[in-house]
Simulated scan of single mutants.
Amino acid sequence: MKLVYVFDAYCGWSHGFSGTLREVVSRHPELPVDVVSGGLFTGERRVPMRRFGHIQEANDAISGLTGARFGESYRRLAVEGSFVMDSEAAARGVAALRQTAPSRAVELAVALQLAFYVDGLDLSASATYRQVAREAGLDADAVVAAFEAPQAQKAAEADFRRTSELGVTAFPTLIAVDDSRTVALARGHATADEVDHRLAAVGVAHTS
């Protein structure tokens, strides 16, 4: 069995789920995790932040429920309103980080969300991936090269296809996959204990 984590780097609820995700991974080191980008802000949804009038209310709800922090740099970006969240570019970044350090995909996905939601960094900019890579102790040149390579675009498109094939329509979604069986463990929000309870129902015990 493995876990599949479908998220979007520009999704506030995915940011809020980071704590649960890290705890689940800590409790179940025996379960590999595929990190998949969902593509929340693509096509016609790729518009300036000011077009999403509910952002502050949503962030307040996320903070209240999960304790997730939204940094001042990000808040200024949201208030100014001209920034465009491009999930395709972010998915290329996720793919580049995942390619460079496959075993650290969860950690790096969380780091990328912190780069945006705390530091207000642009997930379409090579400089962001250089910074994330350096802070993670990775080869920054290799990560940037992977981000800028055509293969990253193909990987992003493959992630979006996989999201559709899994039937995921809301982010984040955490799924357990065992052969042909898929079981939803979390959609939007869940605690680590709730995820554990659902894992136990499919025969995975909390042993760590």
Rank of each mutant, 00 (worst) to 15 (best):
D139P: 03
A96C: 15
E88G: 15
V177K: 01
S180V: 09
A78E: 11
T169L: 05
A91E: 00
G137H: 06
R104Y: 09
L121P: 02
A155Q: 02
E157N: 11
R181K: 08
A155T: 05
A105G: 05
R134L: 14
R76C: 13
A109S: 06
P172W: 03
R92K: 15
A101Y: 09
A158S: 12
G93T: 03
S124T: 14
A125N: 11
A111F: 14
E148Q: 14
T100H: 10
L138Q: 11
L112A: 15
V132K: 04
A152M: 11
F160K: 08
A91Q: 05
Q151F: 05
D86T: 04
S82A: 11
A136H: 06
Q151A: 13
E157G: 07
S164F: 09
A156G: 03
F83Q: 03
L123N: 03
E107A: 15
L77R: 00
L97C: 02
G81F: 10
S124H: 14
Q131F: 09
A96Q: 06
S180G: 07
L174T: 03
D86A: 13
Q153C: 02
S180F: 04
D141L: 00
A158F: 05
Q153N: 04
A146K: 09
F171D: 00
P172I: 08
A111V: 12
V84S: 13
A90T: 05
A90C: 12
A105D: 02
P150N: 08
V183E: 12
V168G: 03
S103W: 03
A95D: 00
R76K: 15
S126E: 07
A105V: 09
D86E: 14
S164G: 13
D159K: 02
A111L: 13
S124K: 15
V177N: 04
A158R: 07
A91L: 07
V94L: 15
D119P: 03
F171N: 00
A90E: 05
G167S: 09
L174V: 11
A115N: 00
L174R: 01
L166R: 04
L97G: 01
A149H: 03
D122T: 12
A140R: 00
Q113D: 01
R134Y: 06
M85N: 06
V79H: 02
E135A: 04
